[in-house]
Simulated scan of single mutants.
Amino acid sequence: MLVKGKIVGEKATVPFEVHKDKDGIEVRVDFPDEEFRYSVDCNCLEPLEVLGLLLPSFEENLGEIRGVFVEEVVEETEGKRGHSLLKSLRRFLSKGG
C-alpha cells in the first residue's frame, strides 16, 4: 500500500509518502532543507499510525502540526489473486449499497 499526502505545519507544508508491504513500512517526508526517511521491518502497524508516531519529531522543522491530509492511497495487489478492499467498497457504493 502506498499513501501520499501533505503535513501542514505552522511554518511549512511538506509532502509525505508511506509505503507498506509484507517486509515492513517506509516513511519519506520532503522537508524544505532535507529529506527524512524512516523504515521499520514490521508491517504490524498501518501507514498512518507510523506517520502519527513520528509527528512530534517533525514539529522542530514545521512548528505546530495543523493537520495531515491524505491525497492518494494506492492498494498494491499481488497478481490477479490480490484483493483490494478499496475497489470492493467503491464497487459496492457505486451500485447504491
Rank of each mutant, 00 (worst) to 15 (best):
C42G: 01
C42I: 00
N43D: 03
N43A: 05
C44R: 00
L45Q: 07
L45C: 08
E46N: 00
E46I: 01
E46K: 01
P47Y: 06
P47K: 09
P47T: 05
L48D: 03
L48Q: 02
L48N: 03
E49A: 10
E49C: 03
E49F: 00
E49Y: 00
L51K: 07
L51V: 06
L51Y: 09
L51F: 08
G52Y: 01
G52T: 08
G52D: 01
L53E: 11
L53A: 13
L54K: 02
L54V: 04
L54H: 02
L54Y: 06
L55R: 11
P56R: 08
P56A: 04
P56H: 07
S57C: 06
F58D: 03
F58W: 01
E59W: 06
E59I: 09
E59H: 07
E60G: 12
E60K: 15
N61I: 02
N61W: 10
N61D: 13
L62H: 03
L62C: 04
G63W: 03
G63K: 05
G63D: 07
E64H: 12
E64D: 14
I65G: 06
I65T: 08
I65W: 09
I65K: 04
I65D: 12
I65Y: 09
R66C: 02
R66K: 15
R66E: 15
R66W: 02
G67E: 14
G67M: 10
G67N: 11
V68G: 04
V68A: 09
V68S: 08
V68I: 11
F69W: 03
F69Q: 07
F69R: 09
V70S: 03
E71Q: 13
E71F: 04
E72G: 00
E72F: 00
E72W: 03
V73F: 07
V73P: 05
V73Y: 05
V73D: 04
V74I: 14
V74R: 13
E75V: 12
E75Q: 10
E75H: 11
E76S: 09
E76K: 13
E76N: 06
E76D: 06
T77P: 01
T77L: 15
T77I: 14
T77C: 12
T77M: 14
E78S: 10
E78A: 09
E78I: 12
G79K: 03
G79F: 01
G79Q: 03
K80S: 14
K80E: 15
R81F: 13
R81Y: 13
R81P: 02
R81C: 12
G82E: 07
G82K: 06
H83N: 08
H83L: 15
H83M: 10
S84W: 04
S84I: 04
L85A: 11
L85W: 04
L85H: 04
L85I: 11
L86S: 08
K87C: 07
K87E: 15
K87H: 09
S88W: 09
S88D: 15
L89P: 01
L89Q: 08
L89I: 14
R90E: 15
R90Q: 15
R90T: 11
R90K: 15
R90A: 14
R91C: 02
R91V: 09
R91D: 14
R91W: 04
R91T: 11
F92A: 12
L93G: 01
L93F: 13
L93Q: 11
L93E: 13
S94F: 02
S94H: 04
S94V: 06
S94K: 14
S94N: 08
S94E: 15
